[in-house]
Design a binder for these strands. Structure first.
Length: 823
DNA sequence: GCAAGGTC
């Protein structure tokens, strides 16, 4: 008989085996899963790691046909639990058969309890052995031994809370997603799914809110009074003042101006600085003008007050997942999804600790010195570490955060490694920068604060006070190893109270308030974290889902909403506003918490949660028309734009996309907004059509299309040979002045089945050209009429040069000449 | 084909 234990993941299983067996365990394979065997107190133990959830909810298969099931019905159907990882489920059953005691040993949190219950459910199918729960929140020897020597009872409420979440999330997600997707498909063809969920949608909602405030932003005028001061010229003024006090009553107004030119650049940066009038941004112009008028032309200012303060900047607190992802995004430009993937690999390679944690403080018995000594293996850290240990006499103290979720320790380095070492172990772009960040953060956290000297000056011009601040780093502290955010010193020239300064310039600067900036990925992570959207492990996934759905995109660290995302959020905002806000999550979370606390049964919570979703679903369906109208248009336009070959441009009537449409009856350009918008344009019936994107029609045509490589056609205008600005579009092939109106140029018109010359001024004069052969216009001019000569080359014949002007006798001459040459 | 949560 055996004691069987299930941990949440393989690594944890091995760690526990190591501790409980004091290192003498063996690895074995059960149904493809690693298991660890050892003896403990005379009993056989075997512990295996699951891989997170091994079961999951889904609807019974008969509800999988989207087109045959009203999405609303999904709210009345109970999803069923299925095994999602067959091999692990088999391993659980196989091991449980021979167990006399089963211990659930997953992470000590809601999902961990639930994962344990999945194993419990499978075990109970084949075993009647007692099932216990080992609770631990770190891999310290004492804690693990205590947890396994005195296991407690599984916590049904906790596990059922997770179960409730799974079912409610699925119900809402499936019903909303299917409803929106199917409704839009009635109006616009798209294979894509338009998904909605209690985490992904509020995530997009944050991006939408920011975008909306940018779009709705109205800049406001404001004025700022700025003064440029100079200490060096001030000294002269002081001297003059002293002189004048001795009796010389003729101060030189222009003294500053004259000597200014002589000053060197270097001096300028040391003696000049700028101050802002204490009122800051002034919204009334009169007020700014008033202040400006009072001091305009003043050349003298005085340092009225000077305060110098030391300010310290504490090191960052230990990294939890959210903080890590934020820093990877803003310092390293690595997306949350990639960063977590890299951290996962660093963890699996033994370089860093477990990356999914909410905790940002170290346990009191955490040992820093062995890790610091590991990190000296990397020469970029060794000097700092040696200094740190010397200065603290080996008693390092972390600057802890305040969150202790009792899940895992903060993210910290486990092994010291150089760049090549790391890259050998983790073959992912960004692996070393991420490792480096984790190491530097770990070291910085143990280092002293950085000290800055902040200087604040009140400078008076007459009675008006100007503020000036300066900052100088006195001691780098932790910043010396953590140079991701460099804070530049803002140096001021040395000054004391009572000093007189020369005022070089006073400006009354008109300016406008700037719109909010686009949302950064790190800000989005903060918003999600604060509002309880997703967990430490899933936040990156929700961001990715929105990108995959085409709701928003990222360029570097900046997020921009896309049309579909904006329209979807806008529609939901009017129909079911709660869905795009964090409240959707917190309402469900409240129910779950009640289950966890035993105040509500799972069934009660499900009933109440389903009622909430039904209410929202009702609001959604009641607004179908508006939703579909907005989304269908945007989707059609996006699909049309991505259809490079047929996309023509933007419809001037409804701003949807115009595309080239070919039917059995013919071809034309139409608006994707059809049937709501019936804008169409004709195109020539024959000739291959190529949309020339680089050409812009000078006569307001929507686009320029090349027809059969022969001539151009301006959409909405007509053939380009009628365009009097055609030089800017496509250089025409001109023969010479029109013999009829003597104003226009005879331009070659090439059609699919004919070619001719036509007057560019549309006087009506045309002239035929040879039907066969490759026809080109030469630079050489006809000596008689001045037209350009033509060259025609027919198959298997010599090229023939001639003047095409019907009214020019040269035509005959040239032809005769050619014939005699060839004979 | 729908969600979110684990983990690989």
């Amino acid at each position: 008989m055996t004691v069987v234990a299930f941990a949440e993941k393989n690594k944890a299983a091995e760690e526990i085996a190591k501790i409980l067996s004091s290192g003498s365990y063996s690895r074995t394979n059960i149904e493809g899963a690693s298991a660890y065997k050892f003896k403990r107190n005379g009993e056989d133990w075997i512990i295996t790691g699951l891989a997170g959830h091994i079961m999951g909810y889904d609807y019974p298969t008969e509800y999988n046909r989207w087109n045959e099931v009203d999405p609303g019905i999904l709210l009345d159907v109970d999803p069923q639990k299925f095994v999602t990882k067959e091999n692990l489920a088999n391993a659980v059953e196989k091991l449980s058969k021979n167990a006399h005691l089963i211990i659930l040993a997953c992470d000590y949190d809601r999902e961990g309890e639930n994962i344990g219950f999945e194993a419990k459910e499978l075990a109970e199918r084949v075993s009647t052995a007692p099932i216990k729960r080992a609770r631990y929140s770190s891999f310290s020897k004492s804690e693990i031994e205590k947890a396994f020597d005195h296991p407690g009872e599984p916590d049904t409420n906790l596990a059922m809370a997770a179960e409730t979440r799974q079912i409610l999330d699925l119900k809402m997600g499936a019903a909303f997603t299917r409803y929106v997707t199917l409704s839009v498909r009635e109006k616009a063809y798209t294979k894509e799914v338009l998904s909605i969920g209690p985490c992904q949608t509020p995530t997009c909602g944050f991006v939408y809110e920011r975008e909306k405030s940018i779009r709705e932003f109205k800049p406001k005028d404001f004025w700022k009074i700025l003064a440029d001061f100079d200490t060096k010229e001030g000294e002269k003024l002081t001297a003059e003042k002293e002189k004048s006090e001795k009796g010389n009553e003729n101060p030189n107004d222009d003294a500053g101006g004259k000597t200014k030119a002589k000053r060197t650049k270097k001096n300028e940066s040391e003696t000049e600085f700028q101050g802002t009038h204490r009122t800051g941004q002034i919204t009334e112009k009169e007020k700014a003008d008033d202040i400006f008028k009072r001091i305009k032309g003043e050349k003298k200012a005085v340092v009225d007050k000077k305060t110098v303060k030391e300010q310290s900047l504490a090191p960052p607190v230990p990294l939890n997942t959210t903080e890590f992802l934020k820093r990877a995004s803003s310092f390293l430009n690595i997306s949350p999804e990639k960063a977590l993937e890299i951290a996962e690999q660093l963890y699996l390679s033994g370089l860093t600790s477990y990356p999914r944690t909410e905790t940002n403080m170290y346990a009191p018995d955490f040992e820093f010195l062995p890790i610091l000594s590991e990190l000296t293996k990397n020469p970029s850290y060794s000097k700092t570490i040696e200094q740190l240990i010397r200065e603290t006499a080996g008693k390092v103290v972390p600057k802890n955060g305040t969150k202790d979720a009792k899940d895992h320790p903060p993210i910290y380095p486990i092994r010291g490694a150089t760049q090549p070492d790391v890259e050998k172990l983790v073959n992912l772009p960004g692996a070393y920068p991420v490792y480096d960040l984790i190491c530097r953060h770990f070291i910085a956290n143990l280092m002293p604060s950085a000290i800055f000297e902040k200087t604040k000056l009140d400078i008076k011009i007459k009675e008006e006070i100007f503020d000036v601040t300066g900052s100088m780093k006195k001691s780098s502290g932790w910043l010396s190893i953590y140079d991701y955010e460099t804070k530049k010193d803002k140096m001021l020239p040395p000054m004391e109270e009572g000093d007189i300064l020369f005022v070089q310039k006073i400006q009354n600067m008109a300016s406008k308030t700037a719109p909010p900036k686009k949302l950064m990925e790190s800000e989005l992570l903060t918003l999600m974290d604060k509002n309880g959207i997703g967990t430490k492990a899933t936040a990156p996934t929700h961001i990715e889902t929105n990108k995959k759905r085409g709701y928003f995109e990222t360029a570097g660290k900046t997020i921009s909403i896309l049309d579909t995302g904006y329209m979807l959020m806008e529609s939901l905002d009017t129909a079911v506003p709660i869905v795009i806000r964090p409240e959707i999550r917190s309402q469900v979370e409240n129910l779950i918490q009640q289950v966890e606390d035993g105040k509500m049964t799972m069934n009660e919570a499900l009933l109440s949660g389903t009622a909430l979703i039904k209410k929202m679903y009702g609001d959604l369906t009641a607004n179908k028309d508006r939703l579909v109208q907005k989304l269908a248009g945007s989707i059609k336009s996006e699909a049309a734009e991505s259809d490079k070959k047929n996309y023509v441009g933007v419809c001037p009537v409804c701003a949807n996309a115009l595309r080239l449409i070919t039917t059995d009856k013919g071809r034309f350009i139409g608006c994707v907004g059809y049937p709501d918008c019936s804008q169409t344009y004709p195109v020539p019936k024959t000739g291959a059509l190529t949309i020339l994107r680089s050409k812009k029609c000078q006569k307001g045509g929507i686009a320029v299309i090349d027809v059969g490589k022969k001539y151009n056609w301006a959409v909405g205008v007509g053939p380009c040979f009628n365009c009097d600005q055609k030089d800017e579009c496509d250089p025409p092939e001109t023969a010479g002045i029109c013999p009829k109106c003597k104003d226009g140029q005879m331009v070659m018109v090439r059609l699919s089945d004919s070619r001719f010359l036509s007057c560019s001024k549309k006087c009506g004069h045309t002239q035929s050209l040879p039907k066969a052969g490759r026809l080109t216009i030469l630079d050489e001019k006809c000596p008689i009429c001045g037209w350009n000569l033509f060259r025609n080359k027919e198959n298997e014949k010599e090229a023939e040069d001639f003047c095409a002007n019907r009214r020019c006798r040269a035509i005959g001459l040239k032809n005769e000449q050619q014939k005699s040459n060839s004979n």
